[in-house]
Design a protein around this nucleic acid. Structure first.
Length: 368
DNA sequence: ATGTCC
């Protein structure tokens, strides 16, 4: 059995935990895996490294995508002018947005051309590292491109990070009862069935982000226009094989936002194509990447900070998170430095920087 | 990650 090539996109000074590297090697040794790429936000996951892309020739591995099929980031321009925006007012209006949506979810599914999939959680953020955030453009690195893309630094922007909720989980669970963590031969009915369900979950997740954005915009009394939507958990056909992305943004689907932690900047980048993009499996970091596990973050930060300390960030933004464990787990200190992560991508010739965005209000969870 | 586990 041959072992796949392993390419890690990071500079020598960027810290990457050994456990994540070990996981890459384990995945590289699976049958049919030809190429493995670790992005600079690489960190250990539950068996599979996060911040990674895996290319196989004739086999599809559902467990390399994981349970949150279709998870990703969307970015909207709101119609709120920055100079009129008051964070206090926004904070007052934002609550209950992780609870069931009152709108007609079935109609939204039908409009999107989706089959009658579960609708109970459509329009809900979920837990973990998911969030919705209001931001403003800060540094503009390429003013011509910024203008050409019709971006507007005068307006408040909205970013949504969420996925397919219980739907993706159910698809992986069903697959696992039959095949465990085994591969599917690409030409089998079981593989076709998984891919069909996977593709539905990807579209459900994209719709979920759109409904979340609608709920936020409604609550804030404004409207929005979607600028981009990017899926970082999924499997797609690529060069006669299958490209699995596990917490890796696509470099071949237009502009990408790479959020830092909830207390740091977000980067808007334009992926480059070419040999270096090929070597990186047309993939990019999907965020800053965890530096500390959730339990480490809780232990270390609960000693040093009160909840109230974490509801305001070093950048002056607000964090709405009524879950006292989650606010420690997701604290900025638990994440790598986003500037270093993006610098590594730039240094490897994978992206051109367009702009940074500064967080204003981050919403995680708050009772209605 | 989880209409999640304690």
């Amino acid at each position: 059995m041959t072992t796949a090539s392993i390419h890690i996109v990071a500079s020598p000074e960027s810290w990457i935990e050994q456990a994540a590297i070990d996981q890459l090697h384990q995945t590289a040794a699976l049958p049919g895996i030809d190429a493995v790429v670790g992005l600079p936000d690489l960190h250990a996951g539950r068996g599979i490294a996060v911040g990674a892309a895996f290319w196989s020739r004739g086999l599809v591995y559902p467990h390399l995508v994981g349970s949150d099929i279709g998870c990703g980031m969307g970015l909207w321009r709101t119609a709120m002018k920055l100079r009129k925006f008051r964070p206090d007012t926004a904070v007052r209006k934002l609550h209950g947005l992780e609870e069931a949506w009152e709108g007609d979810a079935s109609a939204r599914l039908a409009e999107a051309g989706l089959p009658p999939l579960p609708v109970e959680t459509l329009g809900t953020i979920g837990g973990g590292n998911h969030f919705a955030e209001l931001l403003r453009f800060e540094d503009v690195f390429d003013a011509d491109l910024f203008a050409e893309l019709n971006l507007d630094a005068q307006m408040v922007q909205l970013m949504v990070h969420s996925g397919s909720r219980g739907l993706g989980q159910a698809i992986l669970d069903r697959h696992r009862t039959r095949h465990s963590v085994g591969a599917l031969s690409a030409d089998t009915p079981d593989c076709a069935a998984y891919l069909a369900e996977h593709d539905d979950a990807v579209r459900w997740a994209e719709l979920n982000r759109a409904v979340i954005a609608d709920r936020f915009l409604d609550r804030l009394g404004t409207e929005g226009e979607r600028l981009l939507d990017i899926c970082h958990n999924g499997v797609t056909p690529h060069r006669g094989g299958w490209l699995h992305r596990k917490g890796a943004a696509p470099a071949d689907k237009g502009l990408v936002v790479i959020p830092g932690s909830r207390g740091d900047m977000t980067y808007l980048v334009r992926p480059r194509s070419g040999d270096r993009a090929d070597a990186a499996l047309h993939s990019l970091a999907h965020g800053a990447g965890r530096k500390w596990s959730r339990s480490e973050a809780r232990d270390k930060l609960a000693r040093r900070f009160r909840i109230a300390d974490l509801e305001r960030t070093a950048l002056g933004s607000r964090v709405i998170c009524e879950d006292r464990e989650l606010i420690f787990e997701e604290a900025p200190q638990a994440y790598k430095d986003i500037h270093q992560v993006v610098h590594d991508l730039e240094r490897h010739g994978l992206v051109d920087l367009i702009a940074t965005l500064r967080p204003l209000v981050t919403y995680k969870t708050r009772r209605a």
